[in-house]
């Protein structure tokens, strides 16, 4: 098993272990701590392995691996990491380990809590290692949906509404994103090559400008929502306020970064011309978001709200 796929497989194994072996809170958190500890050790190991590999490997991505998944669509399970993804993976595993500790005394349905949390983590890890649009999209949605349960069951305040709002906005965004991805896919043969989902192959293709102009905003908005950019941020303050602390942490620390990562790695990287043509519009929007987030934060009372607004204005 290669070093990267383990990041997806280990969480799945932990989820299975939790499902079948955990009887109560103590066992559940023991399994989670051990599992997340392994995960953390793996990410440290990854950093060193990456530094070592980087010295001899000059490709954009290292530790690449490619397995055909859906042959007819040219969908591959293809993975690889660069410095940004290694950092993000390390960050995620730190936050997750901390999240398990913070949730040490969760008393309502502890097993299910850890299962949801760790299921989410496999989505996040998968997202950061994927170099195939489709695979990446699959992992992205896997990362979003456990959020509904995490906030809805273990949250506080108007948790049901917050959870619903968050899930619908994020899934709506990913729906928009899926149109963008399809648009990129069907234009990936613009230079005469085969249709492909592979990010680096697409990056070599000159996608027609008209197509870029149409699909850039779709892709951008798809990621902007999870990145909580203005004006798609409204899920974030209420979501943060209602979420249990571990989830709130994961949100601000990792999930929102996922949006930024997506914008860079997909929207801007694959559709550079579209990005350029739309840049004024989105620059103004984000500049507005910075100021707006700052003012919103001044007005909000709840500290978690303040954090959420602060993170909105940071992105």
């Amino acid at each position: 098993m290669d070093i990267l796929s383990l990041f997806v497989i280990v969480p799945v194994l932990i989820v299975l272990a939790l499902t079948f072996f955990a009887k109560d809170l103590k066992q559940a958190r023991l399994i989670s701590v051990v599992g997340m500890g392994i995960q953390f050790a793996m990410s440290i190991n990854l950093i060193f392995a990456y530094l070592k590999e980087r010295a001899v490997n000059t490709g954009i991505m290292v530790f690449t691996k490619d397995v055909v998944w859906y042959e007819t669509f040219n969908i591959h399970y293809s993975i690889g990491v660069d410095a940004i993804s290694v950092v993000m993976i390390a960050l995620t595993s730190v936050v997750l380990l901390a999240g398990v500790f913070i949730s040490w005394k969760i008393d309502d349905l502890p097993k299910e809590f850890f299962i949801s949390l760790i299921a989410l983590s496999s989505g996040v890890f998968g997202f950061f290692i994927s170099t195939d649009l489709f695979t990446m999209f699959v992992f992205y949605e896997i990362a979003v949906i456990p959020m509904y349960l995490l906030i809805g069951i273990w949250g506080s305040g108007p948790k049901e509404n917050s959870a619903m709002k968050l899930t619908l906005m994020l899934m709506g965004a990913s729906a928009v994103l899926s149109v963008g991805i399809l648009g990129i896919y069907f234009n990936s043969n613009a230079d005469g090559g085969p249709l492909t989902f592979n990010i680096f192959e697409i990056a070599q293709v000159n996608i027609p400008e008209a197509a870029q102009n149409i699909f850039f905003p779709l892709t951008f908005i798809g990621f902007a929502v999870i990145g909580a950019l203005f004006p798609f941020h409204t899920w974030s303050p209420s979501g943060h306020a209602s979420a249990p602390t571990a989830v709130s942490m994961l949100h601000a620390g990792v999930l929102m970064k996922l949006g930024g990562y997506g914008v860079f790695r997909i929207a801007m990287y694959l559709l550079p011309v579209g990005a350029l043509n739309w840049s004024d519009f989105f620059l103004v929007l984000s500049a507005f978001g910075v100021i707006y987030g700052a003012f919103g934060a001044v007005m909000q009372k709840d500290l978690k709200y303040v954090n959420a607004y602060a993170s909105v204005s940071h992105l």
Binding site: L149, G152, I153, E160, M164, L168
Partner: peptide
């Protein structure tokens, strides 16, 4: 529409889990 449908599927999940 897929997003709208997610809403009502979640209503059932909400009843069962939340």
């Amino acid at each position: 529409n897929a997003t709208i449908s997610l809403y009502y599927y979640l209503l059932v999940v909400r009843a069962m889990f939340l």
